[in-house]
Design a protein around this nucleic acid. Structure first.
Lengths: 189, 189, 189, 189
DNA sequence: AATGAATGAGCTTTCATTCAT
DNA sequence: CATGAATGAAAGCTCATTCAT
């Protein structure tokens, strides 16, 4: 039983590693098997196809983002504090788990990710969504569509980590604080 | 010959169309030929390989962004006005040429785009870079690294158009104005 | 598994047969697969590329020549007898395994045969080399460089089999005896 | 008119050069055109196909061999002298025109050379044939089939030049003399 | 006569998936 | 459960040949 989960996890971990390194189409299933230390056919016991393997990986990473996002989160705190908590968490997550970040960055919009997975992925943002709604209700934020506010404030999360990976900037605690503040400033009244 | 340029342009146009529709790896060269109305081998008269074709396309689209970006731009205008001009232009461009937008969105970080092409693309931002520098000098903007400011204010350009394409929001003139304002608010003092 | 070696051998045999019949460049890998009774992809389990397949074949045939060459060979026999033994063996081998002969004849100097394979092949001549050296030491042979003597005496091995295949001459035992004598006469004092 | 012959010759020369360097199948007609300084289509004014081009080249080189072979040849000289003259000439020719040598070595038995060309090529040896016949009549040579004698004595012509090109031996005048003697010894009574 | 852009059949090679062991 | 040899469709690319100019 733990064996089973182990193999499954090994396969997922190997897939993530290989894909961010070599790209989706340059990662044959045989290479995944080799890197995971299992036979190629074994992968097909856990995942019916490469596409499904990728989609499962996508959803697991999204779930990981989701729980990381809510570390130390208190639903009863003021809007601004909740916003800062989530944004900080995401910055830390992406900065520290670059494989996760790179995968989501590159494949979130790939045709290989099915609409179902995308919908699932969107739900990751449920809590952020709620924060923004509350901010609107309390008239703390600009009176614009929620989706718009979320995108405006959320976009830099990806973009800045990219700058970090590229070596353009160094996302230390101080800079993350400035960045979150900027995100907040963008949408606050 | 205009003929010559025609064929080249037909190939590039067909490539763009097919790739944003089906994805890079599901766009065989034979399909490009068919869609462009030329023989498959003809593509190889104009581009030495699929990789180079993609990179040329990338660079041409970047160049297109660059010139669109500076429509109606006056270098002697105040910083805020220059910022608004560029940001508005990009929003319009991406919103109205969704193929261009989608391509850059999906493949800017693909391993198929060479580092040379990426560097080429970066120069597109020269003018935006200058605007931010001027803003810093005049103490209009937050005292943070230029690269950071650019990424914070630039990230929504992509992200919002995505929302527009997904049908989540409608990027009309009013909303673009709000969005540019939000971008500005994120980095202004 | 004997299975494994079987498939490998089937592929090599089919390759040899097809190449001597149709030529290297008119032998697609698909035809090799068909003739060997295996799928085309299977060939690539055993050989990483067409080039390597050809080189392996080349080396195996060279090794076959090598062992055939020393049938009934006695290293303590007189130089002349050792020379006759080796030369007779080669004549017989080439005459009776024309595919082997034709392959070596046509592709020994093809750019597809790598220098490494060529070096490997050369060692086949070690024993002949030794015979000639002994002949020089014993002053039975003309006082010329070993390499020169070997080439002078060795050249007809290929050329006569060619005449046999072309139907110009019939390499029966009597004629082989004459031919070996002629080779010997060419280099003896 | 001379123009015409010039272009034709340029094409043949370029073909020879490219083919011995890169191999027959890695020498596209476009490369021939480029190297010959003519358009690709022009080649087809002079030669109906690549195959015919190669065959014409083969026959021209054979003709060149033929005339080189008879330099200073006197049909009324003694057999031994005539033999030495022809053999010496061939050695010199091959040694000094290595492109010619390499081409004949590699492609004489290629399936691309038509039977007609091969027959033509064989006629190159007419005079050598006559010498051997005379040698037989005068009972100077071993009583064996002419074809056999020719091959035994002729084989080293190719093989030794190969050693020269490979750097194993240096075919200077002295060594050529020894080699011709060895060829003669092989077939003389 | 001379050109070289255009063509597409055919090549080598890859890889998701199956299945006998 | 686990394996990995076997498969063959499909990819990128080459090049002999044609033909409009």
């Amino acid at each position: 039983m733990t064996e089973r989960r182990d193999k499954r996890q090994q396969i997922l971990a190997a897939t993530l590693r290989l894909i961010v390194t070599n790209g989706l189409e340059r990662t044959p299933m045989s290479a995944v098997g080799r890197a995971a230390g299992v036979g190629m056919g074994t992968i097909y016991h856990y995942f019916p196809s490469k596409e499904e393997l990728i989609n499962v990986l996508y959803r697991e990473l999204k779930a990981q983002s989701h729980s990381a996002m809510l570390q130390g989160y208190r639903a009863d705190a003021p809007v601004r504090e909740r916003f800062f908590c989530i944004w900080r968490n995401i910055f830390h997550l992406y900065r520290d788990k670059q494989d996760l970040y790179r995968f989501l960055e590159q494949y979130s919009f790939s045709p290989m990710i099915t609409p179902e997975s995308k919908v699932y992925g969107d739900s990751t943002w449920n809590e952020a969504h709620r924060v923004v709604e509350d901010g609107l209700t309390q008239q703390i934020l600009k009176p614009l569509p929620v989706k718009l506010l979320l995108r405006i404030a959320g976009a830099p999360l990806f973009n800045l980590v990219q700058g970090h990976i590229a070596g353009e900037i160094v996302l230390d605690e101080a800079l993350i604080e400035e960045a979150v503040t900027a995100c907040w400033d963008a949408i606050k009244r």
